[in-house]
Design a protein around this nucleic acid. Structure first.
Length: 419
RNA sequence: GGAGGGGUGGGUGAGCGGUCUAAGCCGCUAGUUUGGAGAACUGGUGUACCUUCGUGGUACCGCGGGUUCGAAUCCCGCCCCCUCCGCCA
């Protein structure tokens, strides 16, 4: 959520910046409503001051045995006026909120302006594999080895739910455990959160109200299935004023993630690329405003660390304005190469949301004793999602003799060197 | 799911229609005192919004409505916590 004060000061400038993300954005209505809102506040507060004073006099008159009837009737009129102004104020504020809550965050100045395709590759790590045999699609390898069973998963749940069996299930568990403890060893506090959450939580993370269609809703209990632990962790300190010396607060959580993925799927999203359920280890930081971009660099480096240990080639891309998620001011994606399809896929998205989520969740910190609380900056990054990582392993680690090598760090846990 | 009890400031806890500008205690903080510390005493100690930026105003006692000139206090709905019973891994 944007700061209405900032918007009030420079509506044109803010509008111009937001249009680099969504060209159709128009702040005219908000600015108009905000002016009306301030008028109403001034008027209604003056009336309330009058009423408070008068009401106190009623008490005094009664004590002194004076007649209060005239005073009471004039106060009743004041109250009636307050009621009607309050109604208009409430409605105006709600309309502002409805408009404000769907606006995206202001992009950081280092974010390139442009459409999705105009991302900037910051660096590449390792060699892009270039085997002298034909690499099979991960779906083909998975089914051939008996470790992936989409057919039976479809019978149990529906299409696009993955199911791992045997060494596949072992490898999936090993990946989760390895990443979770890897980040914990780097100082992130481990969290095992609830996998269902209420609407308020998703409002804070900004999944709601704009992206309700992407979420699974349990209507009977009014709870949503977790689509990413970012949403859950963003609420960990909702409503709190944190101590500056406790920042940054770093957390790592493992959760399954559920996404409706409403819309069509293309042939290139076959297999594990886009599914309704996947496992993800997520990092989250609550940082002071003046150091949050240093923390973003650390977050990215920590996510990269996982791929380095696994020995998988990847590249790092800076997303352009039009490809940012609503809450993000800046996002860097980490992409792995899938030789079976000759293209890169995102396995991690690391974002600084600055104070966008913190404002919604009223998450603040006191920079120093006696100073006014400021909103924290929130950062999130996958570290990583297992499905595409699994696809990357199945495609990158194929050998000429048709086997798949399990990354060294996972071999002991899986109990095998090859699939 | 049923019955009962309860949600008040950083903590504890009083208040049950009008000096609530929320008592008292604890904590924190500044000062006095002291060679220093402790103790004692004195003062300060929430958040947000509006502002003609004034020792100005408004709102907030779980959340949302209502009654009233006036609500922490009365009424209605919801949420959460605790105790007991039932069910269950």
């Amino acid at each position: 959520m944007l700061d209405i004060h900032r918007l009030r000061e420079d509506p044109q400038g803010i509008e111009q910046q937001l249009r680099t993300r969504e060209p159709a954005i128009d702040l005219g209505e908000i600015v108009k409503l905000d002016k009306r809102r301030l008028e109403l506040i001034r008027e209604v507060e003056a009336l309330k001051a009058e009423r408070n004073e008068g009401s106190q006099m009623v008490g005094q008159y009664k004590k002194e045995g004076k007649d209060t009837s005239q005073l009471l009737s004039s106060l009743a009129a004041v109250s009636a006026r307050i009621d009607s102004l309050d109604d208009e104020l409430r409605e105006t504020a709600a309309r502002i909120d409805r408009l404000l809550v769907v606006l995206p965050n202001l992009p950081h100045h280092s974010v390139p302006v442009g459409v999705k395709e105009e991302k900037v590759i910051l660096r590449t790590a390792g060699e892009r594999p270039n085997p002298d045999f034909t690499v099979k699609h991960h779906l083909e390898v998975g089914e051939e080895k008996g470790i992936l069973d989409f057919r039976r998963a479809a019978m149990i749940a529906g299409t696009r739910f993955p199911m791992y069996v045997g060494l596949g299930a072992r490898l999936e568990m090993a990946l989760i455990q390895f990443m979770f403890f890897h980040h914990a060893a780097n100082g992130y506090t481990p969290v095992f959160p609830p996998f269902l959450a209420n609407a308020e939580s998703f409002y804070v993370s900004s999944q709601l109200p704009k992206f309700a269609d992407d979420l699974y809703l349990i209507e009977k209990d009014n709870l949503y299935l977790n689509p990413t632990a970012e949403s859950l962790l963003a609420n960990l300190h909702r409503g709190e004023i944190l101590n500056a010396e406790d920042l940054p607060k770093d957390y790592v959580a493992y959760t399954p993630c559920f996404r409706r993925e409403a819309g069509t799927y293309g042939e290139e999203e076959r297999g594990l690329i886009r599914v309704h359920q996947f496992n993800k280890v997520e990092m989250f930081k609550f940082a002071a405003a003046d150091t949050s971009y240093e923390e973003l660099d650390r977050l990215i480096a920590d996510a990269e660390g996982v791929l380095q240990v696994l020995g998988i080639h990847y590249r790092v891309a800076l997303l352009p304005t039009e490809d940012l998620a609503q809450q993000a001011a800046k996002t860097v994606d980490i992409e792995v190469y899938l030789p079976g399809q000759g293209r890169y896929y995102e396995v991690s998205s690391c974002s600084n949301c600055e104070d966008f989520q913190a404002r919604r969740g009223k998450i603040r910190y006191r920079p120093g004793p006696g100073e006014k609380p400021l909103h924290v900056h929130t950062l999130n990054g996958s570290g990583l999602a297992t499905t595409r990582l699994m696809a990357a392993i199945l495609e990158n680690n194929q050998t000429a003799d048709g086997r798949v090598q399990i990354p060294q760090v996972l071999q002991e846990m899986v109990g095998a060197e090859f699939l």
